[in-house]
């Protein structure tokens, strides 16, 4: 089995939105929507400020509440890497998944189904990185398999301090942020 995920180095990220734009182009995301986005967290008062810049998206959780909330089975774990996907044909647009997602990663596509990050599974299946990873001018994102002990993503987690987003939600997110 594989468990796909990402490790993102916040020390490198400059928040340029290249990942956002590459995703929109790659996946023909409709105007006004995005599958990934930038969050900037600044703490402190001028001039003593701590700032973390992050690229965020669906965390492809191992215990994904969107999958359990879906009444039709449209939201599901993909056979490969446990990637959380939405089957457009089975989605009835009830938005239960949107309400259940602690990361606000989903939106209703103008065509009526719920849409979100797919980890560019169409690229991954061809041996390529997701579009956001492959475009990043700071090389801050690494995509890989957490079930493979020798994978680059595991090496990074073993060598650096990291955190995930909202671990208290108990969804077992598969994106980690190096700090």
């Amino acid at each position: 089995m594989a468990r796909y995920g990402m490790v993102i180095d916040t020390l490198k990220c400059v928040g340029c939105q290249d990942c956002v734009i590459a995703c929109e182009a790659e996946n023909s995301v409709p105007e006004g929507f995005c599958r990934d986005w930038i969050t900037t967290e600044a703490k402190g008062t001028f001039p003593t400020i701590q700032m973390e810049i992050r690229t965020e998206r669906c965390n492809h959780c191992t215990d994904a509440p969107c999958v359990s909330a879906c009444p039709t089975g449209a939201s599901h774990y993909h056979d490969i890497g446990g990637v959380v996907l939405v089957n457009h044909d089975e989605c009835i647009g009830c938005k239960a998944c949107i309400a259940s997602c602690p990361y606000d990663a989903r939106f209703v596509h103008p065509e009526g189904y719920v849409d979100k990050c797919t980890f560019c599974i169409h690229r991954v299946e061809k041996g390529q990185d997701p579009a956001c990873v492959s475009v990043c001018p700071t090389y801050c994102m690494t995509f890989g398999d957490f079930d493979d002990p020798g994978s680059e993503v595991n090496k990074l987690l073993n060598s650096r301090r990291y955190h995930s987003l909202l671990p208290e939600a108990g969804t077992k997110p598969n994106i980690y942020y190096l700090t």
Binding site: C16, Q17, D18, V20, I21, A22, A25, E26, S134, V135, C136, P137
Partner: peptide
């Protein structure tokens, strides 16, 4: 459809900036 960096180009190293990607 889209535009990407040319991996053989020493300026982009195969990665464009957000403006180039857009």
């Amino acid at each position: 459809w889209k535009i990407e960096g040319n991996p053989n180009d020493p300026l982009s190293n195969g990665r464009l900036c957000p403006r180039g990607t857009g």
